[in-house]
Amino acid sequence: MLRDTPDRLPQDVRPMSNARLGILVLLGAEMMLFSGLIGAFLVFRMGNVTWPPPSHIDIQLPRAVTGINTALLLLSGYTMFQALRAIQKDRVKQLRNWLLLTGALGVLFLGVQGSEWAQLIRSGMTLQSGVYGGIFYVLLGCHAVHVIGAVIWLFIVLGMAVSGRFAASRHIGVETCAIYWIFVVALWPILYVLVYLA
């Protein structure tokens, strides 16, 4: 009787694990959160004839550096995909290396973002300095919090990979982490185009 339950079946013949379904539902909630924030941004962006508003007209967002940072984050999406492929082929050592590289790229992204924010705050653009600063920090800050969460999760998965907890037949922990990471990575170019280029 137990042999027929989905959890007892090999991973490639199971319809869908609870963990994968759970992460999809979580991502649905995350998408609603970000769509609300992007909706608020659209109201402010299109509701103002000039953008940035006259009070922030002298503030220049670092488009070029953020563009390079975007490329780094997209690269981390590729390395995460490679990590997932490695464990699907039972290559645990490659999994560790790809995860480590992904984590390093994530930390680098956060570091560059942090230094940009410090410069913007020094130049007078703060959370309280008006609609422009407010929506900028809330929207991108919310994404940064998600990247921090994803980096922490990734290093937990890396620790589990080092202790030999994953194999080709048992890697749902890597898979859920990869789905979340790719969501966070895929969201960033949309925010970059909206906030920095539009």
């Binding site: 999809l24 539902v25 769509s35 609300g36 659209l42 299109m46 509701g47």
Partner: peptide, 29 residues
Amino acid sequence: EPIGRGFNSSIFFMMAMPFTIVALIGGSV
């Protein structure tokens, strides 16, 4: 008015999002 256009775009964007999410989750399952 710009503020009207802003609200309009925002409403349409957020209105489309639940359908997108249901389609993505449903498609994946």
